[in-house]
Amino acid sequence: MENNKLDQGYIKKKNLHLVLKLIKTNKSISRADIVKMTNMSPTSVSRIVGNLIDLGLVRETETYSKGVGRKAILLEINLKSILTVGAYINKHIVKAGIVDFGGGILYEEKIESEIDKLSYDKIINIVCELIKKVINNSGVDESKIVGLGISLPGIIDYSTGNVLMSTQLKWKDIQLGRCVEEKLGIKTIVDNDVKVEALAESIYGVGKNIEKLALISFGRGVGSALIVGGNIFRGTTNIAGEIGHTTIDPNGALCPCGRRGCLQTFIIEDNIIAEANKVKKTNSLLEVFEYAHNGEQWAVSIIDRCLTYMCITINTVICMYNPDTVVIKGSLIKAFPDMPRLVEEKLENLTWDQLKGSFQILQSQLGSKAHIVGGATLALNTFCDFD
C-alpha cells in the first residue's frame, strides 16, 4: 500500500512537470492541445493546470478559436513567479544575473579582473558582494528567489558543492557551495561551467527539442558535456566530458593539471599565443588569426594544427557519445568568423565513415549568457519542488 502511494505521487509529479514543460516550450497553449500531446484525460489536465495556476506558475491569457464552436483559453508561464540567480567565476571575470522562469536574464553585472591572483577568501567576497548588488539593483522581489547556481572551470563534487580542483583558479578542496550559502542565505548549487552551458543550450539555445546534445568548449581550456533527454550526463564522479585531459603525447607539453601531453595543450588559447610569440610579438588570439589571414605562413601553420586537434576532439566526442548535435563555442570559435566553416571542412576528412551524416555541428546561440542562464536553470531544477 505504501509503495502504491509513492508510485502515485511520483506519477503525479512527473505529469505536473510534463504539463509545465509543454506550456513553457509552446509559449501559449490550450488545455485541449495539452490533452492531445500527452494522452492524459481532460480531467487530469484540468486538475494539473489548476494546481499550476494556484501555485502562480501559470496564468490564463487570451482566448482563440480554430473554427466553429467554443473558444479555448490559452495558458502561458508566469515568468516572474519564480526567480533564480546564476553566477560564473573564471580566472579573469566574475558574473552574476537574475533569471526569470522562462530563462530570460532580467539583470546582470560583471567584474573583470585578474581573479586567479586573489586569495580564495577575497574571491568569495567579490562573488557574494556582486550577487547582493545584482539582487538589490534589479528591483526584483527577493522572496521569489528560490536558489543560486554557480559555475566555474574545474572538477566539482556536484552533491556537496565542493570544488575538488580548479587549475584556472588554483583551488583545491574548497567548500564553495556551503560558504556562499552561509554568507547569502540562498540555497546554492555548484557545477562545472561546461555542463552548465550545455544545459542552458539544450533548454533555451540551439539545442531545444534535441534528444542527445554534446557541447564542446574551446578556449582557455577544452571541455565537453553531454545532455540526454534534458539531463546532464555526469558519469560516476561528475567528471564525464573532461576530454581536454585525455593524453595525446605522454612526452608533450606540460598541462596546468600537472600531466604532460593532454589534448588541450595542443589547442588552448594561452598555448597558441605562446607558440606565436616564438616567431613574432603577439598579445592576443585575434592577432594570430590576423597574421594567418594576411598569409603569414607560420601563423597559418599554428591555426591549421589547432584546427586539426579541434576536429580530433569533436570526432572523439562523436565516437564516444553518438550525439544528434554538437554545439561548439569558446574564444577560439568566437575569435575568427570562419572558424566554424573551417572546422566542418577539416572534420569531413577526420570523421569515421560510419558516423558521417549522423550529426550536425552548430554554434552556441546563448554565447557568454549560457553561464548565467545555465547556473540559474540548474538552481531551478534543484531547488524548485512542487509538493
Rank of each mutant, 00 (worst) to 15 (best):
E108Q: 14
G103Y: 00
G103L: 00
A72L: 08
E76V: 06
V94G: 01
L79E: 10
D100Y: 06
R70E: 08
I111V: 10
K66E: 12
G86F: 01
A87M: 08
V85F: 10
A96I: 11
A87G: 07
V94I: 12
I77A: 05
G97E: 06
G102A: 15
D100N: 10
F101G: 03
I93K: 07
K95I: 13
G103P: 00
E62N: 14
S81K: 05
A72G: 05
V99E: 04
E114A: 06
S113L: 11
N90R: 08
V68L: 11
R70C: 09
V85I: 13
K95M: 15
L75P: 08
K110Y: 12
G86R: 01
K66P: 12
K71I: 09
Y88C: 02
I115W: 01
G104V: 07
I73T: 15
L83Y: 01
Y64C: 14
N90M: 07
I89W: 02
L83W: 00
I82R: 13
E108G: 09
T63Y: 03
S65G: 15
Y107M: 03
Y107A: 07
K66T: 10
E62K: 14
Y64L: 12
L79Y: 11
L106K: 06
I73V: 13
E108A: 12
N90H: 03
K80P: 00
E114Y: 06
V99L: 00
I111F: 00
Y88I: 01
V94F: 05
Y107F: 14
V94C: 02
I93P: 01
F101A: 12
L74P: 02
L74C: 13
K71H: 13
H92K: 15
G103A: 09
F101K: 05
I105T: 12
T84A: 13
T63I: 14
R70K: 11
G86M: 02
Y107L: 11
H92E: 04
K80G: 10
I115A: 04
G102S: 15
N90Q: 12
I115E: 02
I89C: 09
